[in-house]
Design a protein around this nucleic acid. Sequence first.
DNA 1: CCTTATATTAACCGATACGGTTAATATTGG
DNA 2: CCAATATTAACCGTATCGGTTAATATAAGG
Lengths: 203, 203
Amino acid sequence: MNDKFFKLPLEKQQRIINAAYKVFSQNSYKKAPMSEIAEESGISKALLFHYFGNKKGLYLYLWINAMEMTRKAVREYKTLETNDFFEMLKRSLLSKCSLMRDYPHMYAFSLRAYYETDSEIKSAIQDNYSDVSKASEKIIFEKMDTSWFRQDIDLKTMYDEIFYAVDGYMLKKYRSNIIVPNEIEQEIIVLIDFWKKVYTQEG
Amino acid sequence: MNDKFFKLPLEKQQRIINAAYKVFSQNSYKKAPMSEIAEESGISKALLFHYFGNKKGLYLYLWINAMEMTRKAVREYKTLETNDFFEMLKRSLLSKCSLMRDYPHMYAFSLRAYYETDSEIKSAIQDNYSDVSKASEKIIFEKMDTSWFRQDIDLKTMYDEIFYAVDGYMLKKYRSNIIVPNEIEQEIIVLIDFWKKVYTQEG
DNA sequence: CCTTATATTAACCGATACGGTTAATATTGG
DNA sequence: CCAATATTAACCGTATCGGTTAATATAAGG
């Protein structure tokens, strides 16, 4: 990692790492070509190696960067400063939407990176992984006030089901190959309001 | 396509196309190597070309095969011979589980193939696509008896949400890299029963 | 201007992986 | 034992990959 990268104009830095997030989110580590990242970001391949040393260096920087920014966004949205489950959920997802505005493919990258099996990076990633989103989800589950919910449903199943749906929704968005954070934000809110109505007690 | 393929022992046929489904479901068309398919199925690469002519031939066969088998399974499970939405949903998903027993990666392949952008195969696929699963889902939505549902929820949102969750659930299963149809069947039933309880009227 | 330092790239390198072919080897069946 | 068939190892030309290098463009300072 060459520190000169950080002296680049911020817009250029973002263009580069966004290209990298995109390519690495759409290919396995091994089959993601550095040349494609260079082309997508409009710089030469040589410059990419100049800044990040090698492929592994770039990948690990992306990973650490994603973790830091996710943690920061979750904190800024005060995700855990309530015990209303649906409010937590909304803050958590809106924080991810805000990240998506600057880094559209970061979310998809993180998911893929977590399940990456390539031995060259697996260890480095698992070591560094403090389970940002999953851990915060666990905390949500423990902290939330359960008295508002319908008494006849299994909360664990509800919890799983909601996160399946979020995953499935995001999967569909990424497959469409064009990410519009405003649209996602809006549709996410519709879903959350729907869940709140269905799962909480009347009155 | 060489007809001699069909004279092979059925178990060998399945081994070959399952290897192909797996490799094509985990890589884009362009980056899925024929050699990997050969290795995974325990035959030589030359034999693969002998049976299917070329990569495109194999891919297209897999696609048509997947469509036919899906259609057949949906019909065998009498998916549309009821107007109970949750019963339809259950039959539709259980039919997919039954296919999964013989062809674990076919479902994932179909999804990926539908969104494949490679010009060499895109046209051939879209032409042939009569929208098997999506169309049957549409029919489900039109045929179902809506009087059983809670009156205060939006059925379209419910419908979307359920299929997001199914997609997200399957995504998680495929990421875990080991498909156990019995387990999936069981967990799918839990989810459907959960939905039925939540979305229908009491009494 | 000119010079020097820095930023950036085109061209290149060796290795490898790919789709596809071919000629030779197993295997089967009469 | 032979002929037909099934199967493969070895090969081919090409493309792509990660990474390097030597050269060029750009900016800064005197």
